[in-house]
Amino acid sequence: MGWFSRRRRPKDMPALGRSDGPLMDIDRKAVEAHLRAFVEGHRGVEAYVEPATSVTTTTIVLIAWDGEWTRRAVGERKDAFALAQRLGVPVYDVNHTGYPNRMRQWNSRKRRGDA
Rank of each mutant, 00 (worst) to 15 (best):
G2D: 10
S5M: 05
R8V: 12
R8S: 13
R9W: 07
P10A: 12
K11R: 15
D12N: 15
P14Y: 05
A15Q: 09
G17C: 07
R18M: 15
S19Q: 13
G21K: 05
L23F: 12
I26Q: 01
D27K: 09
D27M: 07
R28H: 10
A30K: 15
A30Y: 07
V31P: 00
E32W: 03
E32K: 06
A33C: 10
L35F: 03
A37F: 01
F38G: 05
E40M: 13
H42Q: 14
R43P: 02
E46F: 03
A47G: 09
Y48R: 04
Y48V: 03
A52F: 02
A52W: 00
T53G: 09
T53K: 05
T59R: 13
I60P: 00
I60Y: 00
V61W: 00
I63E: 00
A64P: 02
T70Q: 14
R71D: 11
R72Q: 11
A73M: 07
V74P: 00
V74G: 01
E76I: 14
D79C: 10
A80V: 01
A82Y: 07
Q85Y: 05
L87C: 06
V89Q: 04
P90T: 07
V91A: 13
V94G: 02
Y99H: 08
P100F: 01
N101I: 11
M103P: 00
M103W: 04
W106S: 09
K110R: 10
G113E: 08
D114F: 11
